[in-house]
Nucleic acid binder design. Structure first.
Lengths: 242, 242
DNA sequence: CGCCTATAATTGTCAGACATTTAAAGGTCT
DNA sequence: AGACCTTTAAATGTCTGACAATTATAGGCG
């Protein structure tokens, strides 16, 4: 009674069977799967085929494997970090491979960030403020490369999102914010544009410090508008260059 | 010059090498990878090891394979649908495996949905309205099961999010909305609670129809509050039951 | 009693073979 | 000449059997 669909591919079928068992809760976290040899017998296939199925699951962080006696494959508790990673990779590829316009990506990102404003100003701790301030400071340093500037930008926004104190929100936003980094990295930041951005970051920081959600949203809106103009200039230049 | 880190695992290393090549743009969409035999020679490993690496990449939809002459592995254009699927699976597991509270998940979901309100009321087409209306109608039908009610709920919210006309936003929201379905499915909806929800859905629908972002946000906020009370009742009952 | 060693279970890797699929090349008939 | 069929070769999919590497447990030794 094995389920099939994609032109028959044993390792796919087996991976799906096991994945379903995990997703539907028939296997619980840290539960050990049968050994590869046992699985091979159960599914009526060879060990390499089972191994291919297990590697598929491992790639999605659904299982982890351990060598040695009493080792084997175990249902993995998907950590926030692993989920972040998957989220960022998937989002980045989605953007880079689907001719998603800078406008669309930017709009989505800032819409979601604004969704954090209310919670962030309410729950931010002094730690969050300190992190944001440190990043703003870094952004004013003269020797900073464009890539370093972008990285600091991401770190600041990350701190802002984390200030909302909702790990699910942080996880969802990770993709939206980090996936834009490759697009942002194409931008050459002039001293003037850096100044503008730092000013807006400072406005955001002040709003968070004074727990003013409305001001935070305005700062984010201005940041979106300014980022958009910078991005559009780059895209236009690239279009001219061919 | 092979990169290594996790206690040496050849198929992991190879998968990472290839993944990096794709993510960094050194391999472009639809480009064909060398055959398994060639890869085995290049990396100095056996074909089964190469195959395990390729299955890892296939599990993340980074490549697709085609049998037969002139077949092979090709860099896959990550479609929105594939990305949705990954997003939903990852989000669902993250919620179910990490004792994420109903409150936290609910808060994140509605915060993100509210972020769509402004764009949705501005860009919604009559199609979006019709879909939403159809789902509200379905929700009033007497014979509808609780699962059917939840599914319709997801469909309505999905239409609302899609109305924002930003595919990246739709993609990001897919996880937040659908991952809550297992939690919602634990709720037994009484006739009274269904009535309340339908009333709020109708309010949301009206707001979208009349392009009133503020009303839409209020409806969503009320929906969040009501969903939260329903969920908390269930959680409390489960806690008592042990 | 503590340390060391042997053991067995399990994953990781390899080699070679055969089955299956598929597109392209070449041949045949009209 | 053109349409249809057959062959062929390249590639993935799968199997078998073996060996290497790792590791927790059990047993032996001082």
């Amino acid at each position: 009674m094995k389920s099939e669909s994609p032109g028959s591919d044993l390792s796919s079928d087996i991976a799906r069977d096991i994945r379903d068992a995990i997703v539907e809760g028939r296997m619980i976290v840290d539960e050990r799967l049968p050994s590869e040899a046992e699985l091979a017998e159960q599914f009526g296939v060879s060990r390499p085929t089972v191994r291919e199925a297990l590697k598929r699951l491992a790639a999605q962080a659904l299982i982890r494997t351990q060598r040695g006696a009493f080792g084997g494959a175990f249902v993995n508790r998907l950590s926030y970090e692993e989920a972040y990673g998957q989220q960022v990779t998937t989002s980045t590829l989605l953007l880079s491979m689907n001719q998603v316009s800078f406008e669309t990506a930017c709009e989505a990102r800032y819409a979601m960030e604004r969704a954090c404003a209310e919670l962030a100003v309410e729950r931010r701790t002094s730690d969050h403020l300190a992190t944001m301030r440190a990043e703003v400071d870094r952004q004013t340093q003269p020797g900073l490369s464009d890539e370093g500037f972008c990285a600091s930008d991401v770190a600041l926004h990350r701190a802002f999102v984390d200030a909302a104190g909702n790990p699910v929100l942080s996880y969802q936003l990770a993709g939206a914010v980090e996936a834009m980094q490759p697009l942002m990295n194409m931008i050459t930041f002039t001293a003037r544009s850096r100044g503008e951005i730092v000013a807006l970051h400072t406005a955001l920081l002040d709003a968070v410090e004074h727990r003013n959600a409305h001001s935070a949203e305005i700062a984010l809106r201005q940041l979106e508008a300014y980022t958009l103009t910078l991005g559009q200039d780059v895209m236009a230049a690239r279009a001219r260059a061919g």
